[in-house]
C-alpha cells in the first residue's frame, strides 16, 4: 500500500485533496471570524470574497511549497504544515503592508506583537489541522482511486 501511496504518478490527486482542505479551512476561518464580528457588529456580513482571498493565499503558499519541493511528488505532512505557516505569514505581511501603504505607520498601533504572534499561530494551526483532517478523511478514497488506476495500467500492460 505504501508503495502505491508514494507513487509520484498519483501525486496530483493528493495535491487536489490538500487544496480542498485549504479551501474548507479558509471557509471555516472566515466563518468563525464572521461569527465573532457579528456578535458585536450587527452590520457584519459573511463574504465569499474574503474566503476567496484567504484561499488564494493558502493556495499560493501550497504551490510555493510544492515548487520548493521540486516536483509533483506526493507532499507529506511537513509540506502541509509549511504551507499553512507560509500562508499565514503571507497574510500578516500583506496586511501590514496594506495598512502601511494606505494609512501610514499609525495604523499599526492597534496591533501588538503578541496579537500578531497569536494570529500567526492560530491561523496557521487551524488551517493545517483542517487540511490534515480532510486528507485523513479522504485517504480511503485516494487509495481506492489509485488502486483502480494501477489495476487499469496493469491491464493495459
Amino acid at each position: 500500500m505504501n508503495s502505491v501511496f508514494r507513487d509520484p504518478k498519483f501525486s496530483i490527486l493528493r495535491a487536489l485533496v490538500d487544496i480542498l482542505g485549504f479551501a474548507i479551512g479558509s471557509f471555516c476561518l472566515v466563518w468563525v471570524s464572521f461569527s465573532s464580528k457579528q456578535l458585536s457588529d450587527e452590520t457584519a456580513y459573511f463574504s465569499f470574497f474574503e474566503v476567496a482571498v484567504v484561499f488564494s493565499i493558502f493556495l499560493t503558499a501550497y504551490l510555493m511549497t510544492a515548487v520548493f519541493y521540486g516536483n509533483r511528488t506526493a507532499l507529506g505532512l511537513k509540506a502541509l504544515l509549511l504551507s499553512s505557516l507560509l500562508g499565514t505569514l503571507i497574510y500578516i505581511c500583506g496586511s501590514f503592508l496594506l495598512l502601511l501603504l494606505t494609512q501610514g505607520v499609525d495604523s499599526l498601533n492597534s496591533l501588538s506583537l503578541g496579537m500578531s504572534v497569536f494570529v500567526f499561530i492560530s491561523l496557521g494551526l487551524v488551517s493545517f489541522l483542517i487540511a490534515f483532517a480532510v486528507r485523513l478523511l479522504l485517504t480511503p478514497v485516494i487509495l481506492s482511486v489509485e488502486r483502480y488506476s494501477l489495476d487499469k495500467q496493469k491491464q493495459y500492460k
Binding site: S33, K37, L98, G114, V119
Partner: peptide
C-alpha cells in the same frame, strides 16, 4: 484575550478591515 482582540483590530478579513 488575544483571540477576541483580533476582531477589534484593523487587520483585513480577520479584523475590522482597513
Amino acid at each position: 484575550s488575544y483571540g477576541h482582540s483580533v476582531s477589534d483590530t484593523n487587520l483585513p478579513i480577520f479584523g475590522r478591515g482597513v
